[in-house]
């Protein structure tokens, strides 16, 4: 049985370590916040200028001046701090964030990632994704294994405009986990979702990887 969105997030959460500063992207990556192991101290960064994201607020606590990068209302913690966008990206670009979890439309076998535009169709922009993949110490992509049309999303070469070149360290899909220990090594299939076979993964993947 393939992993659900929540289970994919939980798998990514297993990469968290005590004391980590982490930036989570929009979508499935946001669910990682619900899966932080009890007793572990993880500080979430929001690139619009906050360290220490709290849970969603109670209805009577909603504050329009307190939102995350997905423009959702959030709450603060006693340990939170606020800063401007220039400071926020100084900590991202400067290598001070330990881990980021992002969604993607495509990842190549060389670790390239494309997640910000489809020429002529989707024009939303890259937001902070290019800065995150350029500056954060460890980059995890969480995405469905295949597209809506059934095409592999982990592919030999990205076809869409890139967000970053040779930056991805780990890919968590609904079927399995790929990882590479360094950027010189190929990705390796390190884990299967329960009931999923390596042959099944191979049949749905066009990228080359070590089994």
């Amino acid at each position: 049985m393939a992993w659900t969105r929540d289970q994919m997030a939980a798998r990514a959460a297993r990469e968290l370590r005590d004391g980590y500063y982490v930036n989570l992207g929009i979508g499935i990556p946001t669910l990682v916040a619900n899966n932080i192991p009890p007793g572990m101290e993880v500080t979430l960064q929001s690139e619009n200028g906050m360290l220490g994201i709290g849970p969603f607020p109670y209805e009577d606590e909603i504050d329009p001046d307190l939102i995350n990068a997905g423009k959702q209302t959030i709450s603060e913690l006693p340990s939170s701090s606020y800063f401007g966008s220039e400071q926020s990206f100084a900590m991202i670009r400067g290598g001070h964030i330990d881990l980021t979890v992002l969604g993607a439309m495509e990842v190549s076998e060389k670790g390239d990632i494309a997640n910000w535009m489809i020429p002529g169709k989707m024009v939303k922009g890259m937001g902070g994704a290019m800065d995150l993949v350029a500056g954060v110490k460890k980059i995890i992509v969480v995405m469905e294994h295949v597209s809506k049309n059934g095409d592999s999303k982990f592919i030999p070469e990205c076809t869409l405009p890139l967000t970053g070149k040779d930056v991805v360290d780990m890919i968590v899909t609904d079927l399995c986990v790929f990882q590479r220990p360094d950027h010189q090594s190929p990705f390796r299939l390190i884990e299967l979702a329960p009931g999923v076979t390596a042959d099944e993964v191979a049949a749905r993947t066009t990228a080359r990887y070590e089994a």
């Binding site: 966008s85 220039e86 926020s88 990206f89 670009r93 902070g128 994704a129 350029a134 070149k165």
Partner: peptide
Amino acid sequence: PQGTLAERCRAGGAGIPGFYTKTGVG
């Protein structure tokens, strides 16, 4: 890119006409 945009404004305001960043390479 969002961080580049913030830094371009910070730099411009700080009298720095250009800067090098890893963001967006490739």
